[in-house]
Design a protein around this nucleic acid. Structure first.
Lengths: 125, 125, 125, 125
DNA sequence: GTGGTCTAGACCACT
DNA sequence: GTGGTCTAGACCACG
């Protein structure tokens, strides 16, 4: 859970994204209980109000469900996980292409630069 | 020059990025005069002060230079263009990889998804 | 914090200089919280935006750091203090020499005039 | 005649100062005709209006006098030269001391730093 | 309450 | 008309 306090992106949205990523990575399993906003707040050095806003947003997006008095849980919906992973990945790819295209960089150069960055330091056999 | 007024990214920084992109694409030539902040403000439906802040930031980053009472000009520094293009491209690649990595996606899948998105609709021989 | 509203030097830069001087004098300790821009604005009879611009400039120069929602703090970097003191003093010496040289005044006379002004009223033994 | 177009100090005042310095240095003799504002404007890459304002200011300060149809002349007043030189030098000394004092630098250190800067590179016997 | 962005409109020096 | 500074006041995210 890494937050960038200087980013213009609101912290509560960064937190939502981090949860989504953990889901996509399979680190957060459906049905899991997530920390209370007070716990989470201490862990992330953030104000409890901010965590609560993040939790609200997740609930709104259908990622979690809250059981009165028991806490907040990742929804037990396997389809959702795949959907999220696919959505976020598509979005990242799309944004990358648009950014590079905006710089006037051709598809072939996009691939080359990506490979260079991915496999740099892996030189030779 | 497309601005997203709903983005958390400040408008003045979006404007700086747009100029950088135009430079990278070779659409904005060194030495060119850019519109006064009042003109730009009208063109972009934005307050002149916001434009000025963008221009100030560009000056600070060494993209432009100002001639008192005459206007603001793209710096005549060919090295700068290459530097900007390379910097921005590197940043985009880096961000893409981190985002995908955060989703638990392997390098090979990154490449595949990128190609799919780039060449979709180009099917067949 | 004395500001000269008639000076051609922008107020926000005067404010930055005042902070630098206080740092150089050791009156502003690293880690100290400085007044919010609204407080400072009231204290200095200046618009809050002007103060903020000064604070922004200080941040940009690495003098301060900002904690979202908590305020602005002098950076805890001892090396910075020395650097600033030395930079500002060098600049003052340099400017003095150039000014005097422009008047056709020789180094020995510079020294004499400086001493006279420094120790006037301390006459005799 | 060196002008700094980025300085917050108005250009016309910079021009006045340059003339005063030339007077103090003895390079501009009393009675000398100075260039018309059009000539001066071309020489200094400055708008004629700006030169005119500078000339007005000099006239106002009693440095020059204008002879209808003949041009502008340095006043033939030997006392004035000494006065200007002394005034400007005093002002420079005073400003230097205040600046250094503002940085918490002691008189002895002022002298040392001045000497270091004046005679650096003159090492040895 | 704290910093950050934005709008609106004024004044100034310079071309 | 061009950039630079300043004021006044609004809204937002965060604590």
């Amino acid at each position: 859970m890494q937050l960038n306090f200087d980013s213009p992106k609101p912290i509560y949205l960064q937190m939502v994204d981090e949860v989504k990523k953990a889901l996509a990575r399979g680190e957060l399993l459906p049905g899991t209980k997530i920390p209370s906003h007070k716990e989470r707040a201490q862990m992330s050095q953030v104000n409890p109000n901010t965590v609560q806003r993040a939790y609200q947003e997740m609930e709104r997006e259908g990622l979690t469900e809250t059981l009165r008095g028991q806490g907040t849980f990742i929804k037990n919906d396997p389809a959702m996980l795949l959907r999220i992973r696919s959505e976020m990945a598509q979005a990242a790819v799309q944004q990358f292409i648009e950014e590079m295209d905006g710089l006037g960089i051709e598809p072939t150069e996009m691939e080359t630069m990506l490979k260079n960055q991915l496999y740099k330091g892996t030189k030779g056999g």
